[in-house]
Amino acid sequence: MSGREEVLARLRAARGAVPPASAETPRDYRPAGRAADLDLLVDRLTDYRATVHRCAEPEVAEVVDAVLGGRRIVVPRELPRRWLPASVTAVADDDLSTAQVAAVDGVVTAAAVAVAETGTIVLDGGPDQGRRLITLLPDVHVCVLRSEQVVAGVPDAVARLDPRRPLTWISGPSATSDIELNRVEGVHGPRNLHVVLLAPDAR
C-alpha cells in the first residue's frame, strides 16, 4: 500500500458511515458589501504603527521625497513613474538578485486591496506591486493605496482577491508578540510601513 492509499484508507475507515449530503454552513456573520470607512482604515493603520499620509494623486512624489529622499529604492516594473521624486535613485526590479534587493533602502509599490476594519493592505504580485521579495527585504515600504481599493471587512477582501496569485496580507510593520506576549515592532520584515492613501477622484 502506498502512503497515499494508506492514509486515505485510514481516514475512510475512521470517518465511518458514508457522509450525508453536507449541510449548508451557517454564515450569520456580517457578509461582504458594507461601505468602507476610510477614517477607520487610517485609525487602524496608525494603531499598529504604520504611518499614514493622505493626499491627492499628484502629491505622491512629495510624500515619497519626504520619506525616502536621497536614498536608493527598488520599484516594481510598472509603478507609475510620476510617483517618484527626482531625489530618489530608483531601480526597477528586472529580476534583480536577492543581494541587490537587500542592499537598497526602501521600496515603493501600489496595492491590490485594503481592509478598513483590520488595517490590512493586501499585495497580489500585480505589475505595480512586484515580486514578494521586493517588499520584504528593504527596511522602508511605501505603499500607495487608491481609495476605491479600500473595502470594509475581511469577507470583502476575500471576494475581491484571486487565490491563484501569490498574496501577502500586511498589517503594520513587522512585529512580534514573543517577548512577554506584548507586541514589539521591528523584526525581519520592513520596520517602517508608510501608507499613502489617495483622496477619491474628484471627477
Binding site: Y48, R165, P166, W169, S171
Partner: peptide, 12 residues
Amino acid sequence: GERMNPYTSMWT
C-alpha cells in the same frame, strides 16, 4: 489579540 496579525502569506 490583534485585529490582524502583521503578515499572512498565501500561495498556490
